[in-house]
């Protein structure tokens, strides 16, 4: 059963269309990335899934519940980390989480045990009595994730989780998100930093002006948009474009002197290596996963030309 399901979900603000005819299915236990530039409808989609904004038309189901009719049940089971998450600066980390447990209606003993558990897990136990006003951006973000875990959620929705973090903190944070997946929590995350999150997403949906333009695994998308899911860089003697193009599965070869960029629908490294060695020498051979940024840029360039 799909954990998150939308059918024709649409949201308009006056004449402005924020999200148009969104059909989405997120399976249990997967990490799904809602990706796209700012203002492409990611946050609006998330708010509709939580019942915080009313859709203009269409419907959504989260864990089989309608977020408009049963928002309390949905919000009790779904953890949400907003973009630029804020806490009460004059309260300590522990007090902030204590307020959340009260809103969740947890009994005292249970609440304290859970707060200790999540703070320790996020590495914030040592600073639990410090005022949140003194927290760094990365610490706040981890406190936000701690709050999400406080609910013991079935689904975690994270809006721009790595925004504003330095590369090291972002990497650590992505590791924590991977940890959620290992626990069996379904994760829906939104981001405009495509290259950062492509590593951890099982499937992605690319948004463009309120529409879901592309949907699938990164390899699928690369195959569909770039004409090849595999990108191989070869350094060898010049003049090998012809033989490389003959290899079955290769869709494109770009050459610059002795450096080649080969796009293929499968891993063609053994064939390329053999050809290079037969015709002279092979200096280097490397496989690169295509980046989502490239897919995105390429796709919308084509869409732009077509239009």
């Amino acid at each position: 059963m799909a954990v998150i399901l939308t059918r024709g979900l649409t949201k308009r603000y006056g004449r402005v269309v924020a999200v148009e005819d969104l059909n989405l299915e997120v399976e249990e236990g997967e990490v799904f990335g809602l990706l796209g530039p700012n203002g492409s409808g990611k946050t609006t989609t998330i708010l509709m899934l939580l019942g915080l904004t009313e859709p203009t038309s269409g419907e959504a189901r989260v864990l089989g519940l309608d977020p408009m009719r049963e928002p309390l049940k949905v919000k009790a089971r779904v953890g949400y980390l907003p973009d630029q998450v804020g806490f009460y600066g004059e309260l300590s980390a522990w007090e902030n989480l204590r307020y959340t447990t009260r809103l969740l209606g947890l009994p005292d003993g249970e609440a304290q045990a859970r707060i200790e558990e999540v703070l320790k897990r996020m590495g914030l136990w040592e600073v639990k009595d410090r005022k949140v006003a003194a927290f760094s951006r990365g610490m706040r973000q981890r406190l936000g994730l701690a709050e999400v875990l406080l609910k013991r959620p079935k689904v975690a929705i994270l809006d721009e989780p790595t925004l504003g973090l330095d590369p090291e903190a972002a990497r650590e944070f992505l590791e924590l998100i991977k940890g959620l997946k290992a626990e069996g929590i379904t994760v829906l995350l939104s981001s405009h930093l495509l290259h950062q999150v492509q590593e951890i997403c099982d499937r992605v949906g690319l948004f463009h002006r309120g529409r879901l333009a592309l949907l699938g695994t990164v390899e699928d998308l690369a195959a569909r948009v770039l004409g090849g899911g595999y990108e191989v860089w070869v350094e060898a003697v010049p003049g090998l474009e012809g033989p490389f193009r003959e290899v079955p599965g290769v869709s494109r070869v770009e050459a610059e002197g002795g450096r080649y960029r080969v796009l293929a629908t499968r891993d063609v490294r053994p064939e390329l290596a053999r050809i290079a060695v037969e015709r002279g020498a092979l200096y280097s051979l490397s496989l690169r996963r295509p980046s989502l940024d490239e897919i995105y840029a390429h796709y919308f360039k084509e869409v732009g030309h077509a239009a």
Partner: peptide
Amino acid sequence: ARGTLSRILSQPIY
């Protein structure tokens, strides 16, 4: 202004 509203409203309250 503190960015707490969406966080609080995502808890199970109206």
